[in-house]
């Protein structure tokens, strides 16, 4: 019984949150990695693109609510998602046409692209804050729990409760569908394959008659979809705050590089690697061990590997280790 309690405890505080957070990071990391693979630069404006997409979704959610439209037990945001995606695609394409295209034609260095993406980062930062403000916004509605701790305890008679929030399930399902569709697109369709081909060997892709403009257009569309979905899921699960979204760029970059920059499947795994490490290393295992030990211990120590304050630092540390020993990433990415 104690063993089951321990497992439930771990699931509740480590496994379920890690899967949720990992899915959100994975979606972001795939976006960053696709931009890197096709457009060949690290996009520092990506966190703010996620914020922009989420903001659009929130605005439409409010509009639907004021019109009395809702999805019942599901959050209204899911209904607003397609509209938010369309606006985000618009903004991405706008910046591509007005800014990135010029440097692409000039064949500028990756550093120039990074600097330009900083400019876009500032602009998006301002736009989001001007439109919706800098504060925390909770836009989750519908039912909050699939399984609540109290119900779980009553049903199973266990000491530990398992909480599964509906946002966690929504995150998981949405991410699964998105990734399934995306990887099928990349591996099965002609356009998807040509995208991979372009990312792998640009010159040969041109010699094969692949149209770079079409590839870039599709990449921005996919990236905008991923950014909006990833941002919205994160916002539903936690809350929306522009600054947090900017900060999330850092673990997303870490996940991207850990997975091998330019490699979408690697980025997917990278997201989970980062999420699991962050949560598992900062979790206090005191109670978990208490269940497993045959005797009771009075230790006041939390048996926590690293203080929760250093949550972000863990992803950076993993990144540093990867950079030193396997700069091409755990899963092979673009070779340096």
């Amino acid at each position: 019984m104690d063993f089951i309690n321990a497992i439930i405890l771990l699931s509740n505080f480590v496994i379920v949150p890690s899967i949720t957070y990992g899915s959100q990071l994975a979606l972001g990391a795939i976006g960053v990695t696709l931009i890197y693979g096709v457009l060949r630069f690290a996009n520092f404006a990506y966190g703010d693109l996620m914020a922009f997409g989420t903001m659009c979704v929130i605005l439409f959610t409010w509009l639907f609510k004021s019109l009395g439209i809702s999805l019942g037990i599901l959050p209204t945001a899911l209904l607003a998602l397609p509209l938010g995606i369309i606006l985000t695609i618009g903004v991405s394409l706008f910046f591509d046409r007005t800014v990135f295209k010029y440097y692409r034609n000039k064949k500028s260095s990756p550093v120039t692209f990074i600097v330009v993406s900083l400019g876009i980062m500032f602009v998006l930062n301002a736009v989001v804050r001007i439109i919706i403000g800098p504060n925390d916004i909770v836009f989750m509605d519908g039912s909050r729990f699939i399984i609540s701790a109290v119900d779980f305890k009553e049903t199973t008679g266990l000491l530990e409760g398992l909480t599964i929030k509906s946002t966690q399930v929504i995150t998981l399902i949405t991410t699964s569908i998105t990734c399934f569709v995306l990887f099928n697109f990349l591996n099965k369709t002609k356009t998807g394959k040509s995208m991979r081909a372009y990312s792998n060997n640009e010159d040969l892709a041109l010699l094969s008659g692949i149209d770079p403009n079409k590839i870039i257009l599709i990449t921005w569309i996919i990236v905008s979809i991923l950014a909006t979905i990833g941002g919205t899921l994160y916002g539903l699960d936690k809350s929306f705050k522009p600054f947090t979204y900017f900060n999330n760029l850092l673990p997303i970059f870490a996940a991207t590089i850990v997975g091998g920059i330019g490699n979408p499947l690697g980025a997917f795994y990278g997201g989970f690697v980062i999420a699991f490490s962050e949560i598992a290393l900062t979790y206090a295992y005191k109670k978990f061990i208490f269940y497993l030990l045959p005797f009771s211990s009075d230790s006041t120590n939390l048996i926590q590997y690293i203080s929760t304050d250093y949550k972000f630092a863990i992803s950076f540390a993993i990144l540093v280790v990867v950079l030193i020993f396997r700069p091409q990433g755990i899963f092979k990415g673009k070779v340096i």
Binding site: S194, S199, N201, L204, A205, S208, I210
Partner: peptide
């Protein structure tokens, strides 16, 4: 059609996909 001297395949694509890309147009 042109076969360059170096980097003349899509190394991260399968052989079959390489051929498919050849027939892209």
């Amino acid at each position: 059609s042109f076969v360059p001297q170096v980097n003349n395949i899509f190394s991260e694509l399968t052989v079959k996909e390489n051929l498919e890309m050849g027939a892209f147009t």
